[in-house]
Structure formats: C-alpha cells, structure tokens
C-alpha cells in the first residue's frame, strides 16, 4: 500500500518536474540573446543621450573598462570611452553619490575630452518621491544644468547648491539630494581631469562582469 503510493506519487511528481524544467530551459535558451541585446540597448540609449552620436563612431558598449577610485564610491565603476576616427572624444563614468537623503544615488556622468560635463543621468536612487526624485530626467530637467560646466580645481566654490553659495539650484524643500549629486559630479569631474589619459588607455575589460 505504502510502497505503491510512494512509487506512484514519486514518479508523477518527478515527471512533472522534468517537463517543467525542460520548458524553462528551452525558453531561457531562446531568450538569452534578446535579453542581452535589450540590456545593451538600454545602456546605449542613456550613453547616446550623454555623448551625442556626432562625437563618436565606436561601439560605446564595447569600449568599456572597470576602474577603482574611492572618489567614485566603493567598488569598481565602469567607464565607457567614445572616440571619433580613433580619436578619444568623450567618456562616461558611473559614479556613486553615497550621501543621498535615503542612501546612495547611482549616476552616469559624461565628460568631453576638454573636461567639461556633457551630461549627467541618474541610474538608480531611492530619494523621496516628489521631492528628491527631481534628479530623474523624466521628472525634471534639473539634471541638465550640469551640461557644459567644468570644475576649476578642488576649491571651486561655484560647484555647490545656491543654499551653500554655489550655482546650482536646489529644488524647493530639498537640499540634501542636489547637494549629493553636485558633489558627486564635481568629484568625478576632478578625477576625470586627473585620470583622463589612463582611462582612455585602459583595456576593454567589462565583458563577463555583470553589472
């Protein structure tokens, strides 16, 4: 009695498990390519917003390298190099602003070889909706106020929110979020000015490292 029940149940369940797994495995194989392409495209889209197509003719996604700098936040950060006719033109770097109102803010900042900011985008954040989330381009164009600016040395006082006497508007009611972003961009810009050569020369080594 017990033996028969066990045999029957075991077999049926195992059969179902095998069929189900097979189905999933098949789908996973089938979708592997498109998923990869989607992720690539997503990032490329942002990159293309920051580095206009006329500034580069290379595959930004492939031209990626990992760097380690305390100024960019803990851990490795990706940089994407743009070049036009083998000539370095611009560079985008992932930056972490650790002191947002509710935790770290992930930014992607792009600079031209001249050292000026060509664009900033927020990748991930947990700021207060309606208040701190104006750093998203979808909600507010505040983030574009960095475009075309350059940090003039570490003691450049203009790189601060107006509340602290700088040139960036804090949006009403919130100072912490814009302050964190401004500081992060400033740090990244300073670092870029100093590391430009090495960064452009670094090998493409992002492949296989998942973000």
């Amino acid at each position: 009695m017990i033996g028969k029940s066990m045999r029957h149940n075991g077999m049926v369940l195992a059969l179902f498990a095998i069929v189900a797994t097979l189905l999933i495995v098949a789908t996973a194989q089938f979708t592997e390519e498109p998923i990869k392409r989607q992720q690539e495209q997503e990032l490329l889209q942002v990159l293309n917003q920051l580095i206009p197509p006329e500034l580069h003719d290379n595959d930004l996604y492939q031209s990626c390298s990992l760097v380690d700098h305390a100024e960019l936040g803990p851990g490795s950060h990706r940089i994407y190099r743009a070049s036009l006719n083998q000539q370095a033109t611009a560079l985008a770097v992932e930056v972490t602003a650790p002191n947002g109102y509710s935790g770290a803010i992930e930014l992607l900042v792009a600079f031209t070889v001249a050292g000026e900011v060509s664009g900033v985008r927020t990748l991930r954040h947990q700021e207060t909706p309606g208040l701190g989330d104006k750093i998203e381009i979808r909600k507010d164009d505040w983030i574009t106020s960095f475009n075309g600016l350059t940090v003039q040395g570490a003691d450049d006082n203009r790189w601060a929110v107006t509340r602290d006497g700088g040139m960036f508007d804090q949006f009403t009611g919130a100072t912490i979020t814009p302050r964190a972003v401004v500081q992060a961009v400033k740090r990244a810009n300073l670092l870029f000015q100093q590391q430009q050569q090495q960064w452009f020369a670094a090998p493409n080594n992002c492949a296989g490292v998942s973000s």
């Binding site: 029957h8 149940n9 369940l13 179902f16 189900a20 999933i24 789908t27 089938f30 998923i35």
Partner: peptide, 27 residues
C-alpha cells in the same frame, strides 16, 4: 495527478508559466 501531490504539481505548473513569462518579458 494524485490528490496527495496536486499542490506541488500546481505550484510547479504556475512557476513554470511565470518563469517563461518573465523571460519573455525580459526579452
């Protein structure tokens, strides 16, 4: 499906569908 294992089987069926759905949406 025997009565005793119907719940695990149902869960497996649903989980399979969801996973497939998730992969397809991702793609």
């Amino acid at each position: 499906v025997p009565k005793e294992i119907r719940i695990p089987v149902f869960v497996m069926v649903i989980a399979t569908f969801v996973t497939v759905m998730q992969l397809l949406m991702n793609a």
